[in-house]
Design a protein around this nucleic acid. Structure first.
Lengths: 343, 343
DNA sequence: CTGAAAGCGCTAACAG
DNA sequence: CTGTTAGCGCTTTCAG
């Protein structure tokens, strides 16, 4: 019925011709420029509807040098913390008028994300996964690319960073355990490369020391990556000890869930014989099967702040780099406390 | 040291000038055009390195009308099936030279994804989440947009579709339960809008009927959405029945995990008193705490096929729409069987 | 093999 | 208020 001259989807020229205006006017109504007579605007809109026209995003992106894409690099989607983070990020980014491009560290190191900014395929990136070892990223930062680090941070790097008080979280756990009279406190630790993990551990250790109960290294195990399986195995080994721990802090929830199941597997009563604490408060921590005491990070606030900072940079903001640290909260559940102690 | 004339990142012209060649030649080496003398190629590469040049992705996308982005619409990242799917998708897309743009159905209906194709912001989309109610999507399909449906499909729609044999999975569960002599078989069902759920349920019901043991509707509950919580509650109600079920099929794993915890909460022995079966085989199904019998979908194969089909369409393929149905597999674990029956 | 030249579809001055 | 005119940075004929 309305097949245009050429093939392919309609362009703003097609609209212009059919509406009897200049292409510039079409562009004006597209971008919401107010100085277009209502009459013309209506006419143009009509034709747009009629031809079911959609402006070509690539052309627009090229002109404006804005893609509307924000890249997000996450570390292992297998850790439920990251889907939770993505969910919040996706919601807030869409709300801010952006799309979310996702890279999973499993598939490719963060270089892919970094490439995307350098090639202007995304307007900025949010890294959840940065460590001091991210050299490509570091180089890119020198070019003032809009990058914000969330969750994991790297001290001294020239970019905005948002984290929660992991050190304080670790301290709170130590406080709680000692105050509750736990005697053989264990730790399942991880690589100190990730700032989150490092800070939790050191906060925990330091506070134990301050309280006069320094960590017994025999009760401390380090896993090489974070998964249910590694947690399960590490806890298994700890529970085999002659002098097994009566409390176990795991540097994140995934580890803790594995550890909790190791206890279940061996018939170790939690919290009767063993208290367990995780970190992150992923959804499953609250499930009946685990009922895990943990430290909750303020994900929504972190994400909100991160996006705010990123958008400022994208809009050309050039002030000092900010380092945001948000408070978090010890959430006490059934894996600690005396509820079933009678067992 | 090497600050160019203008501001902003270097362009292919900057490279050309500095290398003493034409801009076209730079473009040729960028696109790997073989007919460039080795000597010139080297010189150009050198300058590219030196200026740390990266071709502008937007400009390239506009010229080639290829963005290198594939959109993926998922339904609720809160269901671990989707992160698992994303992980596979991300890996395989990157391997195929694409980036993955993610939309979560929570944040915005799939219209956003559909918009992105119409605006050529992505080269194609993979929908995991389509239902017959997706009208915008349906309209877009008429324009031959490269779209493939994975997981959830919609019969008769003009696009490629990839699913696993959900009906067969439901039948297998029914078979297994009846063959094992379960007497009061229950079902936690969901909305029939999603093809996956619909097929599992109908396969299950039909097979029960065929075996002469039609489903007792008193033991069937439908949840309005899929979450741990709804599963927990639904199972709770079923377990309160005077004649409670001795086997419970849940149409997906998340529901089943909630149901399993409801049993735990009430002290109902699984599998001693109650057998439980889920669907999807998400990672947690295999965890000690759940040890859930379930049906495993062949995610990697599904994704591989979906990407293959999508790329064909993107490359202009115009053959008949294909409807792929892959086999899946009943995975038997501790939530069924007689291992602990003595209890 | 290499350079010159023509746009991709859009936005944004700049005139009128 | 509206039309004309330039490009954004790249790929790709088309000559040479």
């Amino acid at each position: 019925m309305n097949s245009n001259s050429k093939s392919g989807p309609a362009t703003s020229y097609d609209i212009a011709r059919r509406a009897g205006v200049s292409q510039a006017t079409v562009s004006r109504v597209l971008t919401g420029n107010p100085k277009v007579r209502q009459e013309l605007r209506n006419k143009v809109m009509e034709v747009i509807q009629e031809l079911n026209y959609r402006p070509n995003g690539m052309a627009r992106a090229m002109r404006t040098s804005r893609t509307g894409n924000i890249g997000v690099a996450v570390s292992r989607l297998a850790n439920p913390l990251y889907p939770e983070l993505l969910q919040v990020l996706g919601r807030m980014l869409i709300h801010a008028g952006f799309r979310m491009v996702v890279w999973n560290a499993d598939e490719l190191n963060e270089d892919a994300a970094v490439d995307a900014v350098s090639e202007s395929r995304v307007d900025g990136i949010i890294m959840t996964t940065a460590t001091a070892a991210s050299t490509r990223l570091y180089e890119t930062l020198q070019t003032n690319a809009p990058v914000v680090l969330i969750n994991r941070t790297v001290e001294g790097w020239p970019c905005d960073q948002v984290a929660s008080d992991n050190r304080g979280g670790g301290q709170a756990v130590a406080d709680y355990l000692v105050r509750s009279g736990r005697l053989r406190i264990g730790l399942i630790a991880g690589s100190a490369l990730a700032s989150t993990i490092r800070d939790r551990q050191s906060g925990f250790r330091e506070q134990l020391a301050i309280l006069g109960r320094p960590l017994d290294e025999a009760l401390c195990l380090e896993v090489d990556h974070f998964s249910y399986k590694t947690g399960f195995e590490a806890a298994g080994r700890l529970l085999e000890l002659a002098e097994a721990p009566d409390a176990l802090f795991c540097v994140n929830d995934v580890i803790a869930l594995g550890a909790r199941d190791a206890a279940r597997h061996r018939g170790v009563d939690v919290p009767g014989k063993l208290w367990m604490i995780g970190y992150d408060d992923i959804e499953m921590a609250s499930w009946q099967a685990f009922d895990l005491t943990t430290v909750r990070q303020p994900l929504p606030q972190m994400v909100e702040k991160a996006i705010e900072l990123l958008l400022e940079r994208i809009d050309g903001g050039t002030g000092e780099y900010r380092n945001i640290c948000l408070p978090n909260k010890l959430v006490i559940r059934g894996s600690t406390g005396w509820r079933t102690q009678g067992q």
